[in-house]
């Protein structure tokens, strides 16, 4: 019996490395050819996520709920800022949920390649599957997070339900591309500098407060008092548009910020290509450095 296989049956490895475009193309094609491996890795992730806890995968639904509850109590009740925003729990939940997805992707990226140390040293496979699989698990966890969101809307805010909700996947695609590019870059960098994990944690927290999660973009405009510089900078944050669009669809029931969203999408595609390039450049050193 000969081995039926998804990997090429012969290869040549030499000290000559392909150029940038060829590397990006190679990264995409070799990842696409290993879809089954990615599926297995995701399944393994999901299986493990449920073990050793009493409630298992129920935590995917409870985690975002508790997170929302904490911010509601802090900002809405203690600081008393929720009063001016009607339905404040929904207002923050529809931004916290996608943000949680982003943090999970970045944090998963930090551990993705480093955690595969043993594998990387023992067997040849396209290492891109590692951050891709962890990013995909985060997508699934986001999908589960939508369950309490919809339940909350159904029971507490039925008049906010609109057909715009159907467009959530569109914003999701934009966010997925952007998160993936960050996840891939972080997973490669963390191999060389373990500081990346620490730094990422702080940046994520700062980024969270700088993004319109607990407040709206209008609040920023009010504070900026027409200061064009602040508003310009604020617009550069991709999450201004991503979270703003989610909020339009879910909370306001209006059209998303199409132009902003489109700009973020284009930028995210470029970032993804650069992240793949960075990853592929670094990949040959993984087995030596880890």
């Amino acid at each position: 019996m000969t081995a039926r296989s998804e990997v090429p049956s012969s290869f040549r490895s030499s000290s000559v490395r392909p150029g940038s475009l060829a590397l990006i193309r190679l990264g995409i094609s070799e990842t696409l050819s290993r879809r089954r491996l990615i599926a297995y890795l995701i399944r393994a992730d999901l299986k493990k996520a449920g073990t050793d806890t009493l409630l298992g995968n129920l935590w995917w639904i409870l985690d975002p709920l508790f997170q929302m509850l904490i911010y509601y109590v802090l900002v809405g009740v203690i600081l008393g800022r929720g009063g001016s925003t009607p339905d404040y729990p929904l207002f923050i939940f529809c931004a916290i949920l996608p943000w949680k997805w982003f943090t999970e992707t970045v944090q998963g990226g930090v551990g993705a390649v480093v955690g595969g140390e043993r594998l990387i040293k023992q067997i040849y496979f396209p290492k891109l599957v590692l951050p891709l699989a962890s990013a995909s698990s985060a997508v699934i966890s986001f999908g589960f997070g939508l369950i309490p969101l919809f339940a909350m809307m159904w029971f507490a805010y039925p008049d906010r339900i609109s057909a715009w909700l159907l467009l959530i996947p569109v914003v999701g695609v934009v966010q997925a591309v952007f998160s993936l590019s960050v996840g891939i870059a972080v997973s490669a960098l963390n191999v060389f500098y373990r500081d990346v994990g620490n730094i990422a944690g702080h940046i994520l927290r700062f980024w969270f407060y700088l993004s319109p999660t607990l407040y709206s973009v209008d609040d920023v405009h009010k504070i900026a008092k027409g200061n064009a510089l602040i508003i310009r900078w604020y617009e550069l944050n991709p999450f201004t548009h991503i979270l703003g669009s989610y909020r339009s669809l879910i909370y306001y029931g209006t059209a998303p910020d199409w132009i902003g969203l489109g700009a973020v999408f284009v930028a995210a595609i470029v970032l993804l290509a650069l992240a793949i390039l960075l990853f592929k450049r670094a990949e040959p050193s993984f087995a030596k450095v880890l």
Binding site: T2, A3, S5, V7, S9, S10, F11, R12, S13, S14, S15, V16, R17, R118, L119, I120, K121, Q122, I123, Y124, P284, A287, K288
Partner: peptide, 27 residues
């Protein structure tokens, strides 16, 4: 096995490779 790329020279491998370098692949 293709795990490390050579820094100089080249390797040609013709055929499917199964490597078991330290025990416990994929574990």
């Amino acid at each position: 096995a293709g795990i490390i790329l050579p820094s100089e020279g080249e390797v040609d491998v013709d055929g499917h490779v199964s490597s078991l370098l330290t025990l416990g692949v994929g574990f």
